[in-house]
């Protein structure tokens, strides 16, 4: 349907990195290690899928990390209070959707710039959480919480399966369902979308709600990897997610980009930290390398495009 140049170049970078690792540090591909890397990346991917929607409609949400923490804590508290996981998961998703709906309402109905709105909610949610919880971990969780009570390897399987399912659903929805194509339409030209009978406000609002719901889901997927819930969880998540989406080739000007690119982008960034360990490089370089990759990716994209036109 489109040029897939960016998707291919990111995938190629990922493959090169994996090839280097295969030669220099085959232990990276050990089953345990690979699973650990992937399960750590799964929540980021789920959030990144939602963020893709929001960036496609030409908005941005930098409050996802705070939403993530709120959802994690609520999930943890509910689990500790004895609710079964079949209630905890929907509650977390609903909480996220609610927080997303609030952002979306401010952006779509009041017409406030999303970067500022989500900056405000980013600070507000995080600080509210700190105020209420005073930095306290949610401990003494029931056994059915961690790995859903299924043991590590089965739990990891569930996490990966859910992330894959979400990804597949969204790929299908964005590519083949009318509503998904409207997301592209709104991001491509808001006014034209309005004239085509699409309500851009609703689509924008919907994108924020979906992102929120996915943040709620991702929060559970992340929380069940641990024995306690850290109230500081999700700090910096927004940057990780936006970086993955942008490296994956989604244009911040809206309307362009695919989830396949986002998948490659998220995986590329997720591999850096373990790769540093296996290549015996100081792990503190992770962030610097991430930043470098973002800059190189966008610069290469633009450089290539200006040569073409």
């Amino acid at each position: 349907m489109k040029r897939f140049g960016r998707e291919l170049s990111v995938t190629a970078s990922l493959l090169v990195l994996l090839a280097v690792l295969a030669v220099t540090a085959p232990a990276f591909f050990g089953k345990q290690q690979l699973l650990a890397t992937l399960t750590a990346a799964a929540p980021v991917l789920v959030v990144a899928c939602g963020m893709t929607l929001v960036i496609l409609v030409r908005q941005i949400d930098i409050s996802v990390g705070s939403q993530f923490a709120v959802c994690s804590i609520i999930a943890g508290l509910m689990a500790r209070a004895g609710y079964p996981m079949v209630l905890v998961v929907p509650a977390s998703i609903a909480t996220g959707a609610l927080l997303g709906a609030f952002n979306g309402w401010l952006v779509a109905a009041l017409g406030l710039p999303s970067i500022v709105v989500t900056l405000a909610t980013f600070v507000s949610w995080r600080e509210t959480l700190r105020w209420v919880r005073e930095g306290e971990f949610v401990k003494d969780l029931p056994d059915r919480f961690q790995w859903l009570g299924m043991g590590q390897s089965a739990g990891q399987g569930v996490i990966l399966a859910v992330a894959a399912l979400v990804f597949a659903l969204l790929v299908y929805g964005l590519g083949w369902i009318a509503l998904g194509r409207r997301v592209y339409a709104v991001g491509s030209d808001r006014e034209a979308a309005r004239l085509a009978g699409i309500r851009p406000g609703r689509v924008t609002w919907g994108a924020f709600v979906v992102l929120g719901a996915l943040v709620g889901l991702a929060a559970v997927l992340n929380a069940i990897r641990f024995a306690d819930v850290d109230p500081k969880t999700g700090t910096g998540l927004e940057m990780q997610v936006i970086a993955g989406v942008v490296v994956g080739g989604v244009a911040v000007s809206g309307g362009r980009g695919t989830l396949w690119g986002v998948l490659a982008g998220v995986l590329l960034l997720a591999c850096i930290s373990p790769a540093l360990v296996f290549l015996k490089l100081p792990p503190q370089w992770e962030k610097a390398i991430q930043g470098g990759i973002i800059l190189v990716a966008v610069a290469a994209d633009r450089g290539g495009r200006s040569r073409l036109s």
């Binding site: 503190q284 973002i294 966008v298 610069a299």
Partner: peptide, 21 residues
């Protein structure tokens, strides 16, 4: 390169902090 400032400075945010670390 005419890149959007939001993206550039998001990248350099990671880069600078990462270098400091």
């Amino acid at each position: 390169l005419r890149l959007p400032p939001l993206i550039v400075t998001l990248g350099s945010l990671s880069l600078f902090r990462g270098l400091a670390e």
